[in-house]
Design a protein around this nucleic acid. Structure first.
Length: 324
DNA sequence: ACCTTATTCTATCGGAT
DNA sequence: ATCCGGTAGAATAAGGT
């Protein structure tokens, strides 16, 4: 069986040239360590044409699609015991020894880790689908989980928590607006435990995650609070000023986003109470207030508007009466 | 392993509308 | 009655020694 490989690619993680193409999401995947390469796949390899049967033998690509969601990545990794190779030739003693060693390693890996992995992958799929995220989140999460397994981070920790951490990490990498609290229900552990696992993973697994994009959080909050695009835009504008003045460093991104939304609501007159915003941002009114205060003080423009609006607290009729 | 600092949360109260 | 602002104290996280 031949695998489509991109010979010019080298894995930045383990320097392996064993790079395959995942047909599921169109990413290159290192078949050695499972790293999903951040290279867009726009048919960089020459497209072969088959003119004869000989060509077909050499160039045809066969095999099931690669998936990190399968324990064996969609490839069979079991090593047979025969004394002849695929062409029916006898295997030399040297090769036989090598194969035996490979089989041993293969089996050792399969024993405890495969079981764990199987369970974890099931769990990842469940969690991701329950949260309504797309499959590539699951795929990315499974890559992280594999790494955690490889680094021996799972032993002694709950599989569920590690799954939660992996999913969270995946969301972070894919820039999906999420906070760990979102996972509490589906995972069945509290934020603290999941966060602990997540931190262990970040420290042991080499990866640089971007700072959570505040505007994506704004969008999420805006949708949840059923705000108009104008208010969202306003909030994003506020957030830019906040970032420029470094008012957000060391603060939970969600709380900053919540404060920006709250302020934007006041400015556009589309009022929401602190309680509502805090709930949507999964934080408390106290924290929201604190962020809001800091921002309002720094952006002196905001103060007058705040007072003006506070004098006439026109609340919109709750447009989301239908839920909760 | 202990200490320090900063952030956030819970619980709570009082003033204003 | 509800919203908003303020405070105290505990929990938590991160960094230093």
């Amino acid at each position: 069986m031949t695998q489509q490989t991109a010979e010019e690619l080298i894995c930045p993680e383990c320097s392996s040239r064993n790079i395959g193409l995942s047909s599921r999401d169109g990413h290159y995947v290192c078949l050695n360590c499972g790293l999903v390469l951040d290279i867009p796949v726009i048919d960089t390899s020459p497209e072969y044409r088959i003119y004869s049967k000989e060509d077909a033998k050499q160039k045809e690509r066969v095999g099931a699609p690669l998936s990190m969601l399968k324990v064996d990545k969609g490839l069979s990794t079991s090593i047979g015991r025969g004394e002849r190779d695929a062409y029916g030739n006898l295997i030399s003693p040297l090769q036989a020894a090598r194969i035996k060693r490979l089989r041993k390693i293969n089996n050792r890996y399969s024993k405890s880790q495969t079981r764990n992995l199987k369970q974890a992958l099931r769990e990842i799929n469940r969690v991701v689908s329950e949260l309504g995220f797309s499959e590539n989140v699951a795929e990315t999460a499974s890559v992280f989980y594999r790494k955690a397994l490889k680094e021996n981070l799972v032993r002694g920790r709950s599989i569920k928590c590690m799954v939660g951490a992996s999913v969270y990490m995946a969301c972070r990498q894919l820039n999906i607006p999420i906070v760990i609290k979102d996972l509490e229900q589906v995972i069945g552990y509290d934020r603290k435990s999941i966060a602990r696992c997540y931190r262990v993973m970040v420290s042991k697994i080499k990866i640089n995650l971007d700072r959570q994009d505040p505007s994506s959080l704004i969008n999420r909050l805006g949708d949840e609070l059923k705000l108009t695009p104008e208010t969202k835009k306003e909030a994003i504008k506020i957030l830019e000023e906040v970032r420029a003045k470094r008012l957000d460093v060391g603060k939970a991104p969600m709380s900053v986003a919540g404060a920006a939304i709250y302020l934007a609501c006041i400015r556009t007159g589309e009022r929401r109470t602190q309680q509502m915003v805090a709930k949507a941002a999964k934080t408390t009114p106290v924290t929201l207030r604190n962020r809001f205060k800091e921002i309002a003080n720094a952006l002196d423009l905001a103060l007058d508007i705040k007072r003006g609006a506070a004098a006439t607290p026109v609340y919109f009729k709750n447009p989301w009466e239908d839920e909760e």
